[in-house]
Nucleic acid binder design. Structure first.
Length: 338
DNA sequence: TCTGGGGTCCTAGGACCC
DNA sequence: TCTGGGGTCCTAGGACCC
């Protein structure tokens, strides 16, 4: 018996939840994002596979999605519905003899003892389908990193095993951006150093990486390329470091007074989100995105009230241009750093 | 009428202290 | 007249992820 790590990832999660409660949408392209109006500012949260065939993907502006697939059904994001579906999925996973780490609405890691992880993964996949009607893909690995990458390779509705044994065969020739944590910026910077494929990153000079990416990130990038990962699956409840609320306005805000009014509104909404949790707030940070798309932040130590602190932070901006987005965020004083 | 909203972690520079 | 080096904390920005 050996310990394995599984990573479960629900397939087209948000779109699948929507189709589940509206069976008449089955087989149609469905795009979930914003308030469901594809002529407004907003992006795609999830497109189902039918919509992806038209080139519609997560994070794409809704207006672009609409151009590519005007016949799609556009739906508003309904966080509570996804939250409820997610809870059922996680409860199903906890019926197995495993350490379960929730890693977002539609993802979880499981650490479990088994001789036959592939069969176990099949069982889990069937159990989730049975209790929720949702399909998932499961990666089997010898650590979290490999399990996570394996679930991507398993999609859709599959199971895939990625361990030290087949790492090179599967990953060595892939572009560095396939790794979890390397996005387009880092991939571009690596390419400028002549590093395109994962095997090249694994063989790269650590000092050169440290110079280009910093003392921790550089060596970490090289470790990623090896597939090694010492982090543990943990069932410990997660303690958030902070909480924020931000809003993109359908029309840019003009003038400091409007901006102040909306900042106060956000601060009050955030306060009500925080409820009576009573966690002490250390800092309040205001984010301003000026038109067309230039973002800066300013923060102050918490003083008096959330509203007063947010206004104090706002005072540190020069509000001489139209504002596209405002955000207010708190950082908790009893955070878990250290 | 490109470019959401919720987060996390790391980096670099300046302040400050010894 | 010239001008150290560590360490830590704070802050804003960047990159990434879902």
């Amino acid at each position: 018996v050996s310990r394995v790590v599984l990573h479960l990832d629900l397939d087209e999660f948000i779109a699948a939840v929507e189709v589940l409660r509206r069976p008449e949408l089955a087989g149609l392209p469905v795009v979930v994002g914003g308030d469901g109006d594809p002529t407004k500012r907003g992006v795609v949260s999830t497109a189902n596979y039918e919509a992806r065939r038209f080139g519609v993907y997560s994070a794409m502006p809704l207006r672009t999605a609409y151009k590519r697939c005007p016949q799609a059904v556009f739906l508003q994001v309904d966080g509570e519905a996804y939250e409820a579906a997610s809870r059922t999925v996680m409860a199903t996973l906890r019926t197995f003899e495993a350490v379960v780490e929730v890693a977002g609405w539609d993802e979880a890691f499981l650490e479990i003892e088994t001789d036959d992880p592939m069969t176990l993964a099949d069982e889990i996949q069937r159990a989730v389908l049975k209790t929720t009607g949702l399909w998932c893909s499961i990666g089997v690995g010898d650590n979290k990193l490999r399990a996570k990458l394996a679930s991507g390779l398993a999609k859709p509705r599959g199971v895939f095993e990625l361990t030290r044994a087949n790492w090179d065969e599967v990953m060595a020739g892939q572009p560095t951006s396939e790794l979890w944590g390397i996005g387009s910026k880092t991939a571009g910077k690596l390419e400028a150093l002549g590093i395109r494929r994962i095997e090249q990153l694994g063989a790269a000079d650590e000092d050169e990486l440290a110079r280009a990416f910093g003392p921790r990130t550089g060596p970490w990038l090289r470790r990623l390329a090896s597939g090694e990962d010492a982090s543990r699956v943990s069932a410990e409840p997660y303690i958030p470091r902070g909480h924020g609320k931000e809003r993109t306005f359908q029309r840019d805000l003009e003038g400091p007074e409007r901006i102040r009014v909306e900042t106060v509104r956000l601060a009050r909404e955030l306060e009500s989100d925080l409820g009576n949790e009573g966690r002490p707030v250390a800092r309040v940070v205001v984010k301003v995105r000026f038109a067309p798309f230039f973002t800066t932040t300013r923060g102050v130590a918490f003083e008096g009230s959330l509203e007063a602190s947010a206004l104090a932070a706002l005072e540190r901006f020069r509000l001489d241009r139209p504002v596209r987005l405002l955000g207010v965020r708190v950082e908790f004083a009893d955070g878990t750093e250290g």
